[in-house]
Design a binder for these strands. Structure first.
Lengths: 237, 237
DNA sequence: CCTGAAAACTGAAAAAGATCAGTTTTGGCG
DNA sequence: CGCCAAAACTGATCTTTTTCAGTTTTCAGG
């Protein structure tokens, strides 16, 4: 059974990059007319809860976490966006103060397309609305899977699943033939899985002892995806 | 602080009914040309995981639960759709085998609009794609809130929140001046909250003892929404 | 109005997870 | 290269949640 064959996991890997790919040239030109490319450092915030972003963001290189912060300060990461993905359009589409925040997970190159250009392109374009609809529907599915996993699986299983998914997301960066390195803080991992960082440490130690992965500082290298999948609970029966 | 002012809670109450409201007459006519209205009984299944529905469903009266079933048979309800809402369009938009199921929660009147008519209307209409985009974006927000709640709140808090939301959904059915009655099985409640039905029973008993609600059989009548909100953890600080 | 199956409830025990209070390690910066 | 703050780790304890093994109640159909 392959990883991508595992239903909720390949859904989690969905990329919205297709939105801008192969747009009619004229539309693409117009959309990118006032695009601003910028370097962001780890930890920088793209937009914050309760605001309407200035535009939509296209991640050319790097990774961005999408999260919400609770009243009592607890952070929940519900998506890690990879290079090639587009974020920030939900707020612009609903034109509402938006409950999500986005922060840069590792040094990234991100382009910003002004709100107005995006909305205009959406009005004019013949393909953009359809693509967005499909993308949103797909994202919806990703979230419903996350809900099932968070509500029903143990912390160990959730962490195993998160690691499998993250491994896929960090695949691109590995030099050919070299290890895939997941570079993410324990706290961020905890905020994906919905637990504390102490728990993440504990289970990572357990996985390490079981020969499933290695750690060097905060870096995680997965050695045995098969065992992780077993632990994730998706091979049961 | 009003219920609807509570951020994640009013989001959960979102209705997608606006999608079909006040469409241009011609478009509406065309969309409804082959619409089939039908009575459904409690427990009937509208569509099942892994299928593409024949059409989209408009709930004229009643309620429908949207859920996913895990490999090991665990059911997770991620949304309760109310009268006025439209369901089933995700699968049709992505044109994929779809991971969600929908079953009738109480006797309902539901109209089915054939897939082809819906897709054609989507192509022709000037307002439908935009509306769907907004609706989907909004639904997305509802799900991210659910994720935060499920990942970070205790079972007691989750149940409190679920009850507040369900109370809003069952509001319409209460005769003026009479109690709002939440009519849902313990098992379904458990599958919303992500726990077992024994736990639901336990906490309901606790709430009853605290004067927060009454139960008659499986019916739940909430007496003190304020206390429930307090228990939900949303008044903290 | 009975009756049987499904649903709801209860208690006790075990397991899982959160929390607290530290110690050790890491990695960026002067 | 060493220092310092932040992050990671560890162990012990306490709380929450699950699980199991029943009993009681409800309610739909005969």
């Amino acid at each position: 059974m392959s990883i991508t064959g595992l239903f909720p996991i390949d859904k989690w890997n969905f990329k919205s990059q297709s939105i801008l790919n192969n747009l009619p040239a004229a539309e693409y030109e117009q959309l990118c007319a006032h695009m601003m490319e910028q370097e962001y450092k780890k930890g920088e915030i793209l937009f914050r809860e309760g605001t309407v972003p200035q535009g939509i963001f296209f991640i050319k290189r790097g990774k961005v976490k999408k999260y919400q912060v609770d009243r009592d300060g607890k952070e929940q990461i519900f998506y890690v966006a990879n290079s090639g993905e587009l974020i920030g359009y939900h707020a612009i589409l609903t034109n509402e103060r938006y409950p999500d925040s986005a922060a840069v997970l590792e040094d990234s190159t991100i382009a910003c397309i002004p709100k107005e250009d995006f909305l205009e392109a959406l009005e004019r374009s013949t393909v953009l609305p359809q693509r967005l609809l499909r993308t949103l529907s797909h994202e919806f599915t990703v979230l419903t899977n996350s809900i099932s996993i968070l509500a029903q699986r143990s912390v160990r299983e959730r962490l195993a699943i998160a690691l499998i998914v993250l491994r896929e997301k960090f695949k691109d960066e590995a030099p050919p033939g070299k290890d895939i390195v997941i570079n993410i803080s324990r706290k961020d991992l905890a905020n994906i899985v919905g637990t504390g960082d102490e728990n993440v440490t504990r289970f990572l130690t357990e996985f390490k002892t079981a020969g499933i992965l290695d750690t060097h500082g905060r870096k995680i290298m997965i050695r045995d995806v098969g065992k992780l999948i077993a632990l994730s609970g998706y091979n049961s029966r």
